[in-house]
Nucleic acid binder design. Structure first.
Length: 584
RNA sequence: GGCCCCGUAGCUCAACUGGAUAGAGCGACGGACUUCUAAUCCGUAGGUUGCAGGUUCAAGUCCUGCCGGGGUCACCA
């Protein structure tokens, strides 16, 4: 068992079963609420369990006495150096140094697989992210969702989920018609016509020029003589794939990829939308009705009550029922969205995660309602909301004028600071908290730049290992396992080992909570722990990693920091960031 | 007005799905470089977790009501 907290939890449960057999604790006791975690205050030991307090209800003994019984049994364990009872009945454990020393070999053997969890148990899970409208290149606002989704997918894979990364292509809405009209204009331009300024309401971007050229080559001027509907229909099969290529290139620059691209239009064409609606109808969840105007100060000026096809989402916790069809009888976007999630469910994903921008937060309830309804409660949808990223340059906000089409593209940001920096920074906040991204600060080589700080720790470790190799001969990871880890004894060293050993637990909690940012925070802690130990070697030369006269000590310490480097690399891998081996 | 998110040190943020004396960084002040990379580290100072109740052995965390900030609000995706 690589997760030592889980390992000792099992030992504690064994003690409790013994007490159940002895009749001290009642049969049928629920052990699930027992926690085994590191105490906030390190002086309380290495691990604390609330077992005696949680089990108090199932025993006649008061919690502190029950804790005493458990403690007596635990103290027989050779790996446990001391057991204390504190406060209302906490049991605090201190582990023997050998437990921490032993973690080094675990890490070295597992390498980057260290910390992997089995909580996913190979269950299928679908993560949908980005899903930007295919009307142009990605702008910077898409970056956060792309990174969060991708890191979440990587994280879940490490927890042994079967992850599918999905992109839902909104290729059926009116924005696609706008795209087609914009492309048609560019086609006329390619045919030699002077089109002047791009009219209001069409996409002005230069990226459509090449689309116009392709259209001109394929169709020529004859297309312009057909009805507009035919023109648009002719343009879409050309323009859409080109836009998707644009988007995929941008995502590629960020190191983000998807397994499945699901087209909204295909859901209409295949009858999947009708099917999911029939399904809801059979459940009696659909009716023709008139929605109330939104309660508030200013109802929409053009409000006209009109009958629509509605879904009873209010039965599932939503604030109101929601329209599936517009008053003219055509679908709302909500209907294909339901079909999309039903489609995922039927492909075997009972667990689904959607990563959305903050402006879509108001749709969570209806979407979750719909998933619950259409899967008869068997499907689960978690929606992660990404708050705004505020772009700064040296503390000054970067101005973006949407009117003039001067938005900053994802590509520009990646080109300026690099994909690793973008990725790491996007994960330095909880997804639902706003984030500042300063072009200058994220490239600083200093403590307050977390990307650099973590990378630097890794580079330093690599540097030490290179130096040790020059002194004692080439160092291979396989040989390090044979080092005498019992030479790792100083509290500062053990402290680093404790931080390293916390990784499996961090990974698991990040996976359970769908919060990849926890990995980024952990890596800063780990880097800090390493940098501290490094500097301690200045005050106390006996704690330097390399001691020329003592090869065995050096090798033990090299093993220790090698395992630290593995964990840094492993954590960075979840974030999709490559570790640096040298920084000069 | 309804709903959602947020409110924690001067600033930016953590707090392991309810745990013990709420933690880091920045800024401020004071220290450590003939370096295993000082691009770093150590120390000091800094708090009624917006307010008021409730739930229990235990609340920053859950519930209710206020205050303040942001987002969003029929047929746009």
């Amino acid at each position: 068992m690589m997760n030592i907290f889980a390992a000792f939890r099992a030992r504690i449960e064994t003690c409790i079963r013994t007490l159940i057999q002895e009749g001290v604790i009642g049969e049928g006791t629920d052990l699930s609420r027992i926690s085994v975690e590191p105490p906030r205050d390190p002086s309380h030991g290495d691990m604390a369990t609330n077992a005696a307090m949680v089990l108090g209800k199932f025993s006649e003994l008061p919690p502190r006495d029950l804790a005493g019984k458990i403690a007596d049994l635990l103290s027989k364990d050779a790996d446990i150096a001391s057991v204390d009872i504190a406060g209302p009945g906490f049991i605090n454990l201190s582990l023997s140094p050998s437990v921490w020393q032993g973690q080094i070999a675990h890490v070295l053997k597992a390498g980057k697989a260290y910390g992997n969890s089995d909580i996913g148990a190979e269950k299928k899970i679908n993560v949908e992210y980005v899903s930007a409208n295919p009307t142009g290149p990605m702008h910077v606002g898409h970056a956060r969702g792309a990174v969060v989704g991708d890191a979440l997918a990587r994280l879940l894979e490490r927890a042994n989920y079967q992850v599918t990364r999905e992109y839902y292509i909104n290729d059926a809405g009116s924005q696609i018609d706008t795209l087609a009209r914009s492309a048609l204009l560019r086609m006329r331009e390619a045919l030699g016509e002077d089109i002047g300024d791009i009219p209001e309401g069409l996409y002005p971007g230069d990226y459509l020029v090449s689309v116009g050229q392709v259209l001109a080559e394929k169709y020529g001027a004859s297309l312009m003589e057909k009805p507009e509907a035919d023109q648009i229909a002719a343009v879409k099969p050309i323009a859409l794939p080109m836009m998707m290529e644009l988007i995929k290139d941008d995502l590629d620059a960020l190191g983000v990829r998807h397994d499945v691209f699901l087209s909204e239009q295909s859901l209409h064409d295949s009858g999947a939308v009708d099917k999911s609606l029939v399904r809801l109808d059979e459940m009696g969840l659909i009716y023709e009705g008139v929605l109330e105007p939104p309660k508030g100060k200013t109802p929409p000026p053009d409000w006209e009550p009109s009958p629509q096809t509605l879904f009873k989402s209010s039965q599932f916790g939503d604030d109101s029922d929601r329209a599936l069809k517009k008053s003219d009888g055509s679908w709302t976007y909500f209907a294909p969205d339901i079909a999309c999630h039903l489609d995922k469910f039927e492909r075997g994903y009972a667990q689904m995660i959607d990563v959305w921008g903050a402006d879509h937060a108001g749709y969570i309830k209806r979407m979750k309602s719909a998933v619950t309804a259409v899967t008869a409660g068997a499907g689960d949808l978690d929606v992660k909301i990404c708050q705004m990223v505020k772009l700064m340059r040296n503390g000054e906000p970067v101005k973006m004028s949407k009117r003039a089409g001067q938005f900053i593209t994802l590509r520009e940001v990646v080109d300026e600071v690099g994909k690793d920096v973008v990725r790491f920074m996007m994960l330095t906040r909880k997804n639902d908290a706003p984030l500042e991204f300063d072009f200058v600060k994220v490239q600083e080589q200093s403590r307050d730049n977390p990307v650099f700080y973590v990378q630097y720790a890794h580079a330093r470790i690599c540097s030490v290992i290179r130096n040790a190799g020059e002194m004692f001969g080439a160092i291979h990871d396989d040989d390090l396992t044979d080092s005498d880890m019992s030479l790792i004894v100083d509290p500062a060293e053990i402290s680093l080992l404790k931080t390293i050993s916390a990784f499996p637990r961090v990974l698991e909690s990040a996976a359970v909570n769908h919060e990849p940012h926890r990995i980024a925070f952990y890596l800063q802690d780990l880097a800090s722990s390493f940098h501290s130990l490094w500097n301690l070697g200045k005050e106390r030369p006996d704690l330097k990693f390399i001691i020329e006269e003592q090869k065995n000590v050096t090798m033990a310490r090299v093993s220790m920091i090698r395992s630290c480097a593995f964990v840094i690399a492993s954590g960075l891998d979840i974030l999709g960031v490559r570790p640096e081996e040298e920084m000069r």
